[in-house]
């Protein structure tokens, strides 16, 4: 393994190579002090380099006893078990939920595509409300992040959906009460609206920044279980001459969204405008990455 693969700065890499450390294995038995002297760098930097090398090694090592042979890997059985127990958000449509295996999956990026006016935004708003159905009624009792790139989020419509959802919950509650399993529903539409965090994004830079920042935002607001981006590609379709840059940014963003979904166990919904024929292949690239 070459040192070129280590996540360290180019000047450090240069120093390593010129001092003769070309492979990672040549770094394994070194003390930081030794390395610092050889490379003529401060000891903290040497510690950092060795840390990078060590973490790189452990990824390939057959360490970590237990059942996993390669670190970070999972057996298919574990995956199956995990999928069985994973959190789902209902779409309010039983048949659709069945097809999806119980609803929109947390931990995954789900893409919604379609022609204008077909109802992408509606589904987005619906999910932002549905994620708040309390645990006692089979929901998640969580909060939602709504990222609006097109300005199409309508707070009036969100109120309507919230009202309808509350009356549904009350009805279900009456049904449960008959079986002596009472669950308190003391929701008002305003409570539901309060749990939707709305971000209005006006440029692709803001979008990139927000998606970077989401990690921090969600760690501060742990009860967020769904992130809705409506729509992912809107700003990337306006005035982009550098198509390579556009593809790179979109791919990077898709990876970040997937990572977010995995780490925080949130569902990510990406509303998406289908690519026009002849305009570019970004659409298909995005789609390939989504599950």
């Amino acid at each position: 393994m070459e040192v070129a693969g280590l996540p360290i700065s180019p000047s450090q890499r240069g120093k390593l190579i010129s001092a003769g450390y070309t492979t990672i294995s040549s770094l394994t038995s070194l003390s930081p002090h030794h390395l610092a002297r050889d490379l003529n760098i401060p000891e903290e930097e040497a510690v950092q380099i060795l840390g990078a090398a060590a973490s790189h090694n452990s990824r390939l090592d057959t360490s970590d006893g237990g059942h996993s042979i390669v670190n970070g890997a999972q057996t298919a059985w574990d995956m199956f078990r995990e999928e069985q127990s994973s959190l789902r958000i209902t779409t309010s449509c039983a048949d659709f939920d069945n097809i999806l295996g119980g609803g929109i999956n947390c931990k995954e990026v789900t893409e919604i595509g379609g022609v204008p006016g077909i109802g992408k935004t509606q589904l987005g708003i619906q999910l932002a409300v549905n994620v708040q159905i309390p645990m006692g009624l089979g929901g998640l009792g969580a909060k939602a992040v709504y990222i609006d790139t097109e300005g199409s989020f309508m707070v009036e419509r969100a109120t309507q959906i919230a009202e309808a959802s509350i009356s549904d919950m009350l009805e279900y509650n009456n049904h449960l009460a008959k079986q002596n399993r009472v669950c308190q529903v003391k929701f008002k539409p305003s409570d539901i609206l309060e749990n939707i965090f709305y971000f209005r994004v006006c440029s692709y830079t803001e979008q990139m920044a927000l998606i970077n920042h989401l990690e921090k935002f969600i760690s501060d607001h742990k009860d967020v279980k769904i992130v809705i981006v409506d729509s992912v590609t809107f700003h990337f379709r306006q005035d982009f001459e550098d198509l390579a840059l556009r593809t790179r940014l979109l791919n990077g963003m898709a990876l970040k969204l997937m990572n977010l979904a995995k780490t925080f166990n949130v569902a990510v919904i990406a509303g998406h405008i289908p690519a026009q024929i002849g305009s570019s292949c970004t659409g298909t690239r995005m789609s390939e990455m989504h599950t």
Binding site: V145, Y146, F153, V155, A158, S190, L193, E194, N195, I196, F197, Y198, F199, R200, V201, C202, E206, A209, L210, N212, H213, F217
Partner: peptide, 8 residues
């Protein structure tokens, strides 16, 4: 990144 507001 832009600031957020709740829908309320």
């Amino acid at each position: 990144c832009p600031p957020y507001q709740t829908a309320l």
